[in-house]
Design a protein around this nucleic acid. Structure first.
Lengths: 187, 187
DNA sequence: ATGTGTTTTTGATATTGGTCAAATAATATT
DNA sequence: AATATTATTTGACCAATATCAAAAACACAT
């Protein structure tokens, strides 16, 4: 599924809008470990992952690598604290697998916003989805113990357990990898 | 500042759009402890707080009251997991002070979306702000100790410390009120 | 196959912050 | 003002999880 097909599954797009979206975007195959964006910089592109896996992370005050989130197939990916507001990001965005992504520049997206209300509309829908996932994660961290956090990911994102290293999963859940390893060991 | 003035401070609205927004909205004074929305139900309205203070909270599996977030003057308030997607919410929304709010139904907002691209546009801007605040809070909870969490709120939302009870602040930060009380005691 | 680097597991110990209970302080009600 | 209610503080104790260190398992390149 390319990203226009994905959008069409959310709202049906007039053909000319679909064409414009494809025309303004660029498809690329990029290798594992490639960085789509870096902390401290303004994220220049909005990505769509057709195949592959990404990780948002940042370094905290102690220099520790903290995984904020993961993005899988059929997700729009960007530094949400940066791209739309044109200010430096907190996050790095890293490919965890060889991936196929579409990308679009901010300027091109703005042009689409101005010319096609449908694009603005679908952006709103997607932002709401992302906001909801973020709220979910907040609730999973606040006052949940390590066991409960692990259950959150096994229920909400079981696919990630197969594809992501234990260390990244633990960090995402706000626990140490030793603790996660012990949780897995029992049961 | 009423909510149309607030929106105008973000993007300049054509006069007819501003008029429509005001026409579709309702201004109310509501008392402290009033619930704008309840968990388990579809949140029916989008609110704007002109004066006052609100709290999002939910009851976790143990029946514990968990504060997710606060909303102050000049904020749009709704159950973001519910209102736009028309599904039951996790959250209660409670007034913590006597407040003046504007409200608009989903149906009326949809009509505005359909007729005025500017409304869709400004919604996107507001959603991005909210998403960013939510990401900030995520980062404040993940791998930050109690002291650091308290510093987060003193820096980012110092006003809340004056207006919200210690118990609610502690819950918001994912720590017990006893721990927060002890943090305040030293220093 | 062998060696090198990375990831995961296991163990021992330390620490943070939670829990429970009671005292004090602040706020609301009669 | 007196009383009841609610919020905050304090103390003693304990549990969950972090930290540090080392071993084991696994992956990858030569």
């Amino acid at each position: 599924m390319n990203f226009v097909e994905y959008i069409n599954s959310l709202v049906s797009l007039p053909e000319n809008v679909a064409d414009e979206l494809l025309k303004k975007s660029r498809k690329q195959n990029l290798p594992k470990h490639y960085w789509l964006s870096e902390a401290g910089e303004i994220c220049q592109k909005l990505y769509f992952v057709e195949k592959g896996l990404v990780r948002w992370f940042y370094y905290n005050a102690d220099g520790k690598d903290i995984t904020d989130s993961f993005g899988v197939e059929n997700s729009f990916i960007t530094a949400f604290d940066s791209f739309f507001q044109r200010k430096p990001s907190r996050y790095f965005i890293e490919l965890l697998e060889d991936s196929t992504v579409y990308s679009m520049t901010y300027a091109d997206l703005e042009t689409l916003f101005e010319n096609f209300p449908e694009v603005e509309h679908v952006s709103r829908l997607i932002l709401i989805q992302i906001l909801e996932q973020t709220l979910d994660k907040n609730a999973a961290l606040q006052f949940q113990n390590a066991q409960q956090r692990y259950e959150f990911i096994t229920k909400k994102h079981p696919d990630l357990l197969q594809r992501v290293s234990l260390g990244h999963i633990a960090s995402y859940l706000g626990i140490t990898q030793e603790t996660l390893s012990r949780i897995r060991a029992k049961k």
